[in-house]
Design a protein around this nucleic acid. Structure first.
Lengths: 400, 400
DNA sequence: CCGTTTTTCTTCGCCACATGAATAAAACAT
DNA sequence: ATGTTTTATTCATGTGGCGAAGAAAAACGG
């Protein structure tokens, strides 16, 4: 809201660098941020003073062969409370507890569909799960909660504007949870959170433009420009999964037909696999990992109908990535999420479609990464965002 | 390249504001840029000193009813040379001469296809046309040339990586022209230039994210984030027009089938209109404005086959805008270029397609503008970019 | 016609932030 | 011990921007 002072901006850059590339000595920070040792020293002095950073290097071996005064690495303090990250999937919820240094302390997975709950019931349930998890995992002092969910999210107001999972519209989820938990709640789209987390881990993804396509329960897109999430009109992610690629394609859970998601998401593959065997169409539940593994195994064994299903899915994936390349001209395209388990089945038609869909000059610029990413990484995405917010929060508290 | 000093950055912001919102007094500048009158005074003093700005307000009436010391508006000097902007279309070239204050001084349109020329011949021809135009219009002192062309452009290196118009690939156009003309040459994609120019004129387009779809000779996309052009991997615009929407659609000049362009561009509509009458398919020349006007007239008169053509084109346009909305979540979508002449024919199917393609929540956020924009505006886009560069250039010269 | 009012612009002292240079600190090598 | 090397801190300095006070330029009001 209020304009950050230049000091706050550099402070933030410094903390970001430290979070991304691990504990570092002051000289290294200076080099990386392109600022003088004097400035780093000055800035870190106050951060150490505030207790945000510690320097418990002590006996840490510096290698032995180097001479000169040893580096003193700066760490985030672990004792400034913790943050809980939550992901709400279609029929399960993942929770994770992380201390203020970013170290994972506990995690839990709960099988529980969230559909068909009233807004109040949903928020009551989530608040209950979160407090139970915090208590049972002995969370020291939960300072904030980060929540990643599918659908179209207004990250500024913390509102789920639309979601294929929760039935409701314009759900003020952050506010509701904040009221119930008494803690700040940060909301984001799950694909955005995943993209952010991946870029935190891999410096190459932070350079230039990275389009991250997460394929699993649904299809989401997170887009990064120089490591920062691109935010749209309501500062949310996009609903790229509901671009309608085939005019008379299969039914999508958004109500439309032929959306990208309707070919690629687990529920779509599972449903269409069932239809092949003339078994009754399953209800809307997302299949479990076992069910999906079975389908993949049968396809790998050579089931022609299933192979055709994956061929078509790969083609849609190629078209989708092609659209991204022609529209955004990214340096990196990341394909991640559960669907990467079947990348071998998707790849031939994926590559063929990508080739016919894109202009060669543009296609050659985009490096395509296939990353097997877990939900752990996803919760990490919102957690890091929450931790970043907290840094600023602490500074403001100290000032008062 | 080299990091701009903070001073240079604010200097640039000030000049940009002055260019966008016309001559202004110092107080107004201060309000708009959120800085104190003292700072503005300081900064403008050196700009006036360098001769970049002038204050020849003199007898300008301030309204009469206001009291107090009258505002002194700051103008760009007109006497610091001029800039030529060029647009290379499919079968014509537009040139425009503008003085250092941004006022248009002369313009010319040359009917001349550029295809099937060798790289050297092409650059010779362009250089010749530009010098002739400069001489005949009595250009005082041409400081730079801005060139907008179709296709995939590397704006940093000034290379046309790919173009459906020029047959060549990786053409170092800026360097070639710079060698021939002895002046800096700035290259950009034409849709990007158009988007930029539109946003310069209309402040609302500078707020948030604006996707500008230019439909005419081809289909191009310019994307703005907070008034600045989004730049992809090679810092160029995108080739959105060659997203393949219909797998077995009509032939596109890129070699593919079913590209957005293959439905919407003038050449496509003209070609398909000819085919209806079983006339021989025309050669690849872009039809003239008269030919297009005839087609539009016949369609308005009720020709069912032509109406169908426009219906299909509108549908593709709706799908295209839908993809943009679902992917970029823009605040504004601008449809501009010659194709707006037939917007009445396109609109019904456009709106229907847009509605089925997009999620309502997202669609409602994007304001859709249909703007009849001329090529004049397009050359203005590159010219303003060139002028902006020159400001910095002048500062560096003074410093040396 | 001359002070008063009002608004714009400038001058000046000051503060926040960052830097380079000198200095101190902490190790190893001899 | 004493130099060598690298890291961290201190301090004087410079830059950019700001608030406050004052100067300037007009209209207004007697």
């Amino acid at each position: 809201m209020n304009a950050p002072t230049p000091r706050e901006a550099t402070r933030r850059r410094l903390l970001d660098a430290l979070r991304q590339d691990g504990p570092m000595a002051r000289v290294e920070l200076g080099q990386q941020l392109g600022m003088s040792p004097a400035s780093v020293s000055d800035l870190t002095a106050s951060l150490l003073d505030e207790g945000i950073l510690v320097t418990e290097d002590g006996s840490e071996a510096t290698g032995g062969l180097l001479r000169g005064r040893p580096k003193v690495r700066l760490y985030f303090s672990e004792n400034l409370g913790s943050v809980i990250g939550v992901w709400t999937g279609y029929n399960r919820i993942e929770l994770r507890l992380v201390d203020s240094a970013g170290r994972s302390r506990a995690s839990r997975r709960i099988e529980r569909p969230l559909r068909n709950l009233s807004a109040d019931d949903l928020m009551d349930l989530l608040a209950d799960l979160i407090t139970t998890f915090a208590r049972e995992s002995g969370a020291p002092d939960v300072k904030a909660v980060g929540l990643a969910c599918q659908g179209y999210v207004d990250t500024r107001d913390g509102v789920v504007a639309w979601s294929p999972v929760l039935g409701t519209r314009d759900l003020p989820l952050a506010e509701g949870l904040r009221g119930r938990l008494g803690k700040p709640v940060l909301l984001d789209n799950d694909a955005s959170a995943m993209a952010f987390a991946l870029a935190q881990r891999d410096p190459t993804l932070r350079a230039g433009r990275t389009a991250c396509l997460m394929v699993g329960d649904g299809v989401g897109l997170g887009f990064l420009i120089n490591g920062e999430l691109y935010r749209g009109a309501r500062s949310g992610g996009s609903e790229f999964g509901h671009v309608r690629l085939r005019r008379s394609g299969p039914q999508c859970r958004c109500g439309g037909r032929g959306c990208i998601e309707a070919f690629l998401a687990d529920y779509a593959l599972h449903r269409d696999a069932q239809l092949i065997d003339h078994r009754p169409a399953p209800n809307a539940l997302i299949p479990g990992e076992e069910a999906m593994a079975t389908i993949v195994r049968q396809a790998r064994a050579g089931d022609p109908a299933l192979l055709n299903l994956f061929r078509e899915a790969g083609e849609v994936l190629g078209d989708a990535v092609g659209i991204l390349i022609q529209t955004l001209e990214p340096d990196h395209v990341v394909i991640c999420g559960p669907a990467t388990r079947a990348m071998d089945l998707l790849r031939p038609s994926f590559e063929a479609a990508l080739e016919t869909q894109t202009i060669q000059e543009l296609r050659m610029l985009a490096a395509i990464h296939v990353v097997e990413s877990s939900i752990d990484l996803l919760t990490e995405g919102v957690i890091i965002q929450a931790l970043r917010e907290l840094d600023g929060e602490l500074a403001r508290l100290k000032a008062a």
